[in-house]
Nucleic acid binder design. Structure first.
Length: 139
RNA sequence: CAGGUGGUGCGAGGCAGCCGCGGCCGCGACUCGUUGCGUCCGAGGAAAGUCCGAGCACGGCAGGACACGGUGGUGGGUAACACCCACCCGCCCGAUGAUUCGUUUCGCGUCUCGAGGGCGAGGGACAGUGCCGCAGAAAGCAAACCGCCGAUGGCGAUCCUCGGAUCGCACAGGUAAGGGUGAAAGGGUGCGGUAAGAGCGCACCGCCCGGCUGGUGACAGACGGGGCACGGCAAACCCCACCGCGUGCAAGAUCAAGCAGCUCUCUCCCGCUUCGGCGGGCUGGCCUGUCCGGUCAGCGUGAGAGCGGGUAGAUCGCUCGGGUUGUUCGAGAGGGCAACCCGUACCGCGUCGGCAACGGCGCGGGUAGAGAAAUGGCUGCCCAUGCCGACCACUCCGGUGGGAAGCGGGACAGAACUCGGCUUACCAGUGCCGCCCGAUAC
RNA sequence: CGGGGUGUAGCGCAGCUUGGUAGCGCGUCUCGUUCGGGACGAGAAGGUCGGAGGUUCAAAUCCUCUCACCCCGA
């Protein structure tokens, strides 16, 4: 019973937003993602993933000091968040959410579009991997 | 107008559109802490390094002394400072052209048709200790290696009027001028003086002492006296004066899952049972010095209640303060909202005091607050600038000036409790003001 | 965010306290030994002491600034 017409009429499909509920905010959440040991390196980034029970994905970022100064690190994080925001907007309703942690290695800052394609390919491959894992025990 | 110089401001270049982010407030929704909409606000001069000084918080603390750390010319500014201003002193560079800026060769050009500029953690070395490598004879107390002298004394020779004279030696002794070593060798230069020399004497300079004058003072000036003794290092220990409790917002305050602990209640190990109990085992305490015996307490599981401390986590600290009126909630204390007013850090302007730093007064403006951590992304146009340059103009045919489209492209850098300084990075670029010099016009 | 430490030869470290000569091990090079290699023996080269400035006659050492790296505290 979703809220009244308000939401439907104003936003037929979820807007491309990135709020607090889309973030990983505690170290135990980060730890859980790391400990599944499901990771895919794509270029200068490494994506860790863990299925969550929500209807949307969540994102955590780890950008070490080796990447650059505060300005550079913030720029990288902003671009990655922007890419993630666009991916989350296209997230299929039926699909289960994923907790992602993206670790950034030192590199020249790229454009948001290239970050987006990197993350998408990582998610694609991780999803297939997860499906394979969940099928195996049953069959 | 051009150049130079000092100060100051802006600075993710500007505008628009779309998609977004953090916060306050309002309105609304529901699964009641998340969402939707709207107004407004949203990085810097260094936010950086964390090198000083404060506020603030917790802990400590009668007072004093010691220890430890810091500061160090004088006066002023300041809440305070190691900061700032003015002055004093010392040193260095500079008409053989400094200082500033530019640069490709560091040459040169520029300010410059020219004259000042820079640096200094700068108390005390007769309070004491220590160090001064190598070299050098000698490194802190005066001494003497090569030297110089040998007046005086000594020895020898010659002469002799037997008193002595002359010459030689360098034994005693005198000396520190010259050489040499060194960062530094016990005032410097000159003249006199002497056996040779020496502040031994004198002149000037330096040094020390004394009072005088000027100055708030550091200090300066002239005067008189003293022949001069007193080397350097205190960013070596140290002495003197002054200052300083320790730790830092991850400080700290409030609430508080879970786990563990403690208390209480019930359940409760094995065997028998008439369900009241009885017996048994183990551990510990007491009756005992020991044994036997007696007595008391506990044992293992689960459930519930309570307690204090307190982890995860949350909230506050945290981002101007206060008042009046109205309204509303409330029994009240008090709270919410709206309007208005006052004040505040800070900024600008004016004015007064001051050489200045700065301070007083008046007017106007005026406050980002996250928490795995907000100010961004894309597109288009414009602008500064670099490259390439179709083409145009001039031409002494060597070139010079302009320039469409295209490509590149806009410094250093991100608040994390808050201020005052310092340092470092960039100071890409520009705007404004003062001053200096020059040219032209009036 | 706060606190602390380390930069010295190609590598790992002494020397800094109390200032004057930069040293040790491994490695490198040359020679010897061996049929050859290793091991062994002899000898040699190699250091702007992270950078800049200051104090001092003299700085790896003392002082100030700065750069890089590492560790600790939640």
């Amino acid at each position: 019973m979703t809220p009244p017409q308000g939401q439907d009429s104003l936003a037929p499909r979820p807007r491309a937003v990135y709020r607090k509920r889309h973030r990983l905010t505690h170290s135990n959440e980060f730890k859980a993602v790391y400990e599944t040991k499901l990771k895919k390196p794509v270029g200068p980034i490494v994506v860790f993933a863990l299925p969550n029970k929500l209807d949307h994905p969540r994102l955590g970022l780890s950008v070490g000091r080796r990447v650059g100064g505060a300005v550079t690190r913030n720029a990288v994080k902003r671009r990655l968040r922007d890419a993630f925001r666009r991916i989350a907007a296209k997230w299929p309703e039926k699909k289960a959410g994923l907790d992602l942690v993206i670790v950034v290695r030192p590199h020249e800052t790229r454009s948001p579009a290239s970050y987006q394609s990197m993350i998408e390919s990582a998610i694609d491959r991780l999803t297939k991997h997860i499906e394979k894992l969940s099928d195996e025990p049953e069959t």
